[in-house]
């Protein structure tokens, strides 16, 4: 038991060190959640028409967005960015491992742990006090979890593509910020996708962004029936494959260009 205790105690100490950051992150998400719930509540109260999603479902959707915010592709790996900036990324070619997958797994890892850490407390608190409903059914919960896993892969592929784009442009900062904002918008983090205008729905369903957050959340709510679970996951994984392919091609291209130009 002793070594495990040591690990736990070390973990607690690290968490205490980041306690301010963690607490602040939690408070921030909670605060935003309140604001958004209030705004959406007022919107629902202003209209008597039936909406494609009930207020209760929308509130749950909003809390899930707050809790799983880190699913969205907006944190580039700062090490990778620095290496691309100063050209040392070319040396990475000397590594025996496949460069893309090496960075992909790093990206995936650095995304998963903090996301889980942040999600837990917020899901708990919003579930207990602020209107996050329990999953529609046990199988909905399972579908949700699988879909979150797929979303993590998709989000990492996105992040990789954003990092790789820095190989071409020094102004990549602006571009990657813009892309991540577009991803947030089209994934339903500003306004839940079901509430977008009707004419936009087919396009939103086709685009990869829905797979980032909207798909898992709607599986959770039962808003997407379990029967569409296979298509939903296929959509997520297909887009992941496409983005990985594009990312690998772009990386090979960019590195070749860099080697030819001598950095």
């Amino acid at each position: 038991m002793r070594p495990y205790l040591a690990i736990v105690s070390a973990g607690v100490r690290v968490m205490l060190q980041y306690r301010a950051a963690a607490a602040a992150g939690f408070a921030t998400q909670l605060f935003w959640g309140w604001i958004r719930v209030a705004i959406f509540g007022a919107f629902y109260a202003s209209s008597s028409a039936t909406q494609p999603m009930s207020l209760e479902d929308t509130i749950s959707y909003l809390w899930l967005t707050q809790a799983l915010l880190l699913l969205l592709p907006f944190r580039l790996d700062s090490d990778l960015v620095a290496m691309i900036r100063d050209g040392t990324v070319a040396y990475e070619l000397t590594r025996p491992a496949d460069l893309y997958w090496y960075w992909f797994s790093r990206t995936l890892a650095s995304r998963t742990a903090p996301m889980l850490l942040r999600a837990g407390p917020l899901l708990l608190v919003s579930g207990l006090f602020f209107g996050l409903a329990a999953p529609d059914s046990l199988s909905a919960l399972a579908a949700f979890l699988v879909s979150v896993g797929a979303a993590l892969l998709l989000s990492s592929a996105f992040t990789m593509l954003m990092s790789i784009s820095l190989l071409w442009t020094i102004a990549g900062d602006g571009i990657s910020r813009l892309i991540s904002m577009i991803a947030q918008f089209l994934s339903g983090s500003y306004v839940p996708l079901p509430l977008f205008p009707q004419w936009a729905q087919p396009a939103l369903a086709l685009l990869p962004f829905a797979g980032l957050t909207d798909t898992p959340f709607r599986l959770y709510l039962g808003h997407l029936p379990l029967s569409s679970f296979p298509t939903a996951i296929a959509h997520q994984l297909l887009w992941t494959a496409v983005l990985v392919l594009v990312g690998r091609l772009a990386l090979a291209r960019g590195l070749r260009r860099m080697v030819v130009q001598g950095g």
Binding site: I39, A42, F43, Y44, A45, S46, S47, A49, Q51, T169, A171, D173, G174, I175, R177, L178, M181, I182, F185, Y190, V191, L195, F196, P197
Partner: peptide, 28 residues
């Protein structure tokens, strides 16, 4: 680039507001 990005980013926020009014008609 950054200036444009800033403009588009805050523009998107407004599009979100617009989408909500489009669906619900008015707010309070």
């Amino acid at each position: 680039m950054l200036t444009f990005a800033t403009m588009l980013i805050s523009g998107l926020e407004f599009v979100a507001t617009w989408a909500l009014f489009d669906r619900f008609g008015s707010l309070a």
